[in-house]
Design a protein around this nucleic acid. Sequence first.
DNA 1: CAGGATCCTTTACGATACTG
DNA 2: CAGTATCGTAAAGGATCCTG
Lengths: 121, 121
Amino acid sequence: MKKESILNNNPICKTRISAIKDTMEILSGKWKFHILGTLLLGDKLRFMDLLREVEGIGTKMLSKELQDLEMNLLIKRTVLNTKPVTVEYEITEFGKTLGSIIDEIAKWGIAYKNALYKRSE
Amino acid sequence: MKKESILNNNPICKTRISAIKDTMEILSGKWKFHILGTLLLGDKLRFMDLLREVEGIGTKMLSKELQDLEMNLLIKRTVLNTKPVTVEYEITEFGKTLGSIIDEIAKWGIAYKNALYKRSE
DNA sequence: CAGGATCCTTTACGATACTG
DNA sequence: CAGTATCGTAAAGGATCCTG
């Protein structure tokens, strides 16, 4: 009897695992959750705002990540007709559906700190 | 008046955003969610099982990711005293607390597929 | 202000081969 | 079986300069 994949032969498991893969592909990279979490809190933010809020990111990465997120319709980019152009980024309704994931991630991060703290005392 | 960070000056926002950062640092990389999602479904799995279940991963990455996860106490590695050694990996109780995040990610991935489908018809 | 172009360094990742 | 070692590519990340 040959050894075969157990989980990936179960349709329910396969669907679940491949859904995880799909989601993470869209949200891949170091910054996506961070940017989305910021935009979820911040309503409309400009490029420079994000550069300040998303600690550690540089213009190149920010620009690239924003393009990725826009392509996937998670955020909306609006160019305002001002003297030196103004660009606003905001999360879309679709993007807001990620809210529950991001909430869970934030909650867990806080719980993790507490767990670390308990362990060290 | 100098422009300053809005969100990161708000303690509540700052806590949240830095919690997101913390979580994602622990779960960084292409494979962590995938591996954890598999171990959540699969109880005890051996190295070769994981290599089969986590489609696309190679031995080097699997080995490295498993070490990362073990270091963060999210999974447990058990060496069994057999002829050619057997090693079992399983998720820890602490690791199971990531379940809600992973559930949300899986749910969203399925919903995303549906959204794509609707948009294209 | 909002970014693109360029250059350079550092990780991340992948394929294959090898060992206890 | 459960990995480690080695090599090579690709992507991430940082710094600086530049433009509409």
